[in-house]
Computed example of a mutant assay.
Amino acid sequence: MTELFASAVEVLPMSAVIPDPGSGEAPPVGAGFTTILGWVKWLALAVCVAGLMIAGATMAIQSRRGEGGEHMGRIVMVLTGVIVIAAATSLIGFLVDASATS
Rank of each mutant, 00 (worst) to 15 (best):
A31T: 04
W39F: 11
E67Q: 04
T89R: 02
V49E: 06
G30I: 01
G56C: 08
L95H: 00
I83M: 14
Q62W: 05
A100S: 03
F33L: 06
V78E: 15
L43A: 15
R74I: 11
L52F: 13
A86G: 06
A57D: 02
P19K: 07
T89H: 09
A86V: 06
L52H: 08
M53T: 00
V11D: 08
I54C: 03
A50W: 15
H71P: 01
E70G: 13
S63M: 09
I92Q: 04
V96C: 01
G56A: 10
A50T: 04
C48Y: 06
S102V: 00
V49M: 05
V9Q: 12
G66I: 04
W39N: 02
A60H: 12
V9T: 07
S7Q: 12
S23G: 03
E10F: 15
K41V: 02
S102C: 04
A87I: 08
T101C: 07
A8W: 00
A57T: 06
G69I: 06
V82D: 10
G32S: 11
G73R: 11
G73L: 12
I85F: 08
G38A: 05
L79E: 15
M1F: 13
M72Q: 07
A55G: 04
L4F: 14
A86E: 04
I18N: 03
K41I: 01
E3I: 15
I54K: 09
L79K: 09
M53E: 05
E3A: 12
S23I: 04
A26C: 05
L12D: 13
L43P: 02
V78C: 13
L4V: 14
G93P: 02
R64T: 05
V78G: 13
G22H: 05
G73Q: 12
G66L: 04
I36V: 14
A31L: 15
I18Y: 08
T89S: 09
V29W: 00
F5Y: 10
G68Q: 02
T101G: 05
G56L: 12
I36D: 04
S7A: 15
L79P: 08
L95R: 00
G51R: 07
A98R: 01
F33M: 04
P28W: 14
E10K: 15
P28F: 11
A55L: 12
V82A: 13
G93Q: 05
A50D: 04
K41H: 02
L95Y: 00
A26Q: 01
L4Y: 09
V96E: 00
G24L: 00
P13L: 08
G56H: 02
T34I: 12
A55C: 12
M53R: 03
A88V: 13
G81K: 08
V47E: 01
V29Y: 00
S90E: 06
M14D: 11
A16C: 08
V17E: 11
E3R: 09
S7P: 01
T58G: 14
A46L: 11
T80A: 15
E67F: 11
W42Q: 03
F5S: 11
L52K: 01
L79Q: 12
R64L: 15
